[in-house]
Write a protein that binds this DNA or RNA. Structure first.
Length: 379
RNA sequence: CCCGCAGUAGUGUAACGGUAGCAUAAGAGACUGUGGAUCUUUACGAGCGGGUUCGACUCCCGCCUGCGGGC
C-alpha cells in the first residue's frame, strides 16, 4: 500500500508511493480540496493534465447533496466527477469546528445541523464510515473531534479522548466490512491524531493512532489560527510516534512554505483550500512570493502572473488582463487564477519530489525559500 | 424667454438652524481538512457668490448646472 522510495539523508523527508484502488499516488503530494465534489473552478481534466496525484472531497457534505443514492447510482465519486485518480474523503470531522454545523459532540457521535434542511441529526463514527464506503473514495478519513480555539485544557483532553474512541470504532466498523458490496475494491482508512497544542496530548494521540494500525495517519486540528511555531511543534512531537512505513498526512496545509517545512519534518500528504481560496481573493502564488492581483498597481502590468511558471494562464495572459477580469466581476478570472494557483502548488510539490529523489532536497528547499521570500507578501 | 423642481464623497442616497450619516466604488489587512461568503480598517463630500444668525448643508437673494412644463 505504501512504500518508501527515497529517504533524505539530511532531514526526515522522504518520497514514496501510496497505492490505492485508483493507481499510485507519489508522495509527497498535495490534494486540492473538492468539497461538494468539485475543485472550485478547476476541471478534473486539468487536474489530471497537471498530474495531480490525489484530491479530497467531503463525505458528510456530499451525503447531504447530491446524496448517496445519486452517487451510488452513478457508480461512485470517481465516475460522477470523472476523475480517475486517487480520491480521499474527509469525514466531516472538520465541521465539528463550525457553529453552523455542530450542535453537540458526545461519545456517541457528532450532532450536525443539515444546513440545507435545518434538520439536526446524530452521526456516529460508524455511520460516517458507511457514508465513505458508499461514496467509493480510495481513502476514508476517521471521524474526529477537532478541539476549538478557546477550549480549556480539560475540554481539549476530552475532545482528544473522544477522537480516540471514535477512531477505534471507525477502524472496527471498517474492518468488519469490505467494499465488495458496492464497488468491488478495497478502501484505505486513515486515523487522525489530535491533542491541541499540548505536547503530552499530541504525543499520546500519535502513539494511540499508530497502534491502531491504520493505512495512514493524519495530524489534525492544526493551521486553524495557532502560531506557526505551535503548529510545527505539534508535528515534531507526533512524527516520531508514527511508524516510518505508513504515510503521514498533515491536514489543512497549505502554503508552499508550510508544505516544504512539513515535508522536511517527515510529512507525506497535504490538503488545503489555500490555493483555490487565495485565487478567489486574487492572491496569486509566484516563485517570488504572493502577489495581490486586484491591486491597482497591476492595471498596466503586461507581464505574466509568474514569469517562471509554464501553465496555460502564464503563457497566454498578462497580469493587466487578469486584473481587469477580476475588477470587472467576470467569473473567468476565478478559473484562470484558481488554475494557476493549483498548478503552482502541484508542480512545486512535484519539483520537491524530484529534488528528494536526486538527493538535492536541502539545496532545493534553501533556494525555493530564498526566492519565495524575496517579495514577501506583496507589501 | 418665463414658471416649477433639484443640486450633499467617484456613484447612489439620508438627516438636521448646532459633531454631515449610510450603501457602494477606492486604498490597506485577515482568511490554510472551502460560503465565490465574511470580518477589520483607511481616505474621500455641501455647485459658485453674497446675506440673515452666536452658529447655515439647512433660511433668504443672485448666478451656474440639470430635469420637467409653458411661450
Amino acid at each position: 500500500m505504501f512504500k518508501i522510495k527515497h529517504a533524505d539523508s539530511t532531514t526526515e523527508a522522504r518520497t514514496g508511493e501510496l497505492k490505492t484502488a485508483h493507481g499510485i499516488a507519489k508522495t509527497p503530494f498535495f490534494m486540492p480540496v473538492a468539497t461538494k465534489l468539485t475543485v472550485k473552478h478547476v476541471t478534473p481534466m486539468e487536474l489530471e493534465e497537471m498530474d495531480t496525484q490525489a484530491i479530497i472531497t467531503n463525505a458528510y457534505i456530499d451525503s447531504l447533496r447530491p446524496g448517496l443514492d445519486i452517487i451510488k447510482k452513478y457508480g461512485g465519486v470517481h465516475k460522477l466527477m470523472n476523475f480517475h485518480r486517487t480520491i480521499f474523503s474527509d469525514s466531516g470531522g472538520f465541521q465539528t469546528l463550525s457553529d453552523t454545523f455542530l450542535q453537540e459532540a458526545t461519545d456517541k457521535g457528532a450532532k450536525f445541523t443539515d444546513p440545507f434542511s435545518g434538520v439536526v441529526k446524530q452521526h456516529t463514527p460508524e455511520q460516517i464510515i458507511q457514508i465513505e464506503r458508499e461514496l467509493g473514495s480510495d481513502v476514508a478519513m476517521c471521524l474526529d473531534h477537532v478541539p476549538k480555539k478557546g477550549m480549556t485544557a480539560e475540554q481539549v483532553a476530552d475532545a482528544t479522548r473522544r477522537t480516540h474512541l471514535w477512531a477505534e470504532r471507525c477502524k472496527r466498523y471498517h474492518d468488519a466490512h469490505d467494499n465488495k458490496d458496492y464497488y468491488d475494491r478495497r478502501q484505505l482508512l486513515f486515523g487522525i491524531a489530535q491533542g491541541g497544542l499540548d505536547k503530552n496530548l499530541r504525543e499520546k494521540s500519535a502513539e494511540f493512532m499508530n497502534k491502531l494500525d491504520f493505512d495512514g495517519v493524519a495530524m489534525g486540528g492544526l493551521c486553524i489560527g495557532e502560531k506557526k511555531e505551535e503548529m510545527f511543534n505539534a508535528v515534531k512531537w507526533q512524527i516520531p510516534h508514527f511508524s516510518k512505513d505508513k504515510p503521514r498526512y498533515l491536514m489543512g496545509v497549505g502554503s508552499p512554505e508550510d508544505i516544504i517545512e512539513a515535508v522536511s519534518l517527515g510529512v507525506d500528504c497535504f490538503d488545503s483550500i489555500y490555493p483555490t481560496q487565495n485565487a478567489r481573493h486574487c492572491h496569486i502564488f509566484t516563485s517570488k512570493g504572493t502577489i495581490k492581483l486586484d491591486r491597482g498597481k497591476y492595471r498596466e502590468d503586461m507581464s505574466p502572473l509568474d514569469p517562471e511558471c509554464d501553465c496555460y494562464v502564464c503563457k497566454n495572459f498578462t497580469r493587466a488582463y487578469l486584473h481587469h477580469l477580476s475588477r470587472s466581476f467576470e467569473w473567468t478570472h476565478h478559473r484562470y487564477l484558481s488554475y494557476h494557483n493549483v498548478y503552482f502548488v502541484v508542480k512545486f510539490v512535484e519539483r520537491l519530489r524530484k529534488a528528494l529523489d536526486k538527493g538535492e532536497f536541502k539545496d532545493f528547499k534553501k533556494e525555493f525559500l530564498q526566492e519565495y521570500k524575496k517579495m514577501g507578501k506583496d507589501r
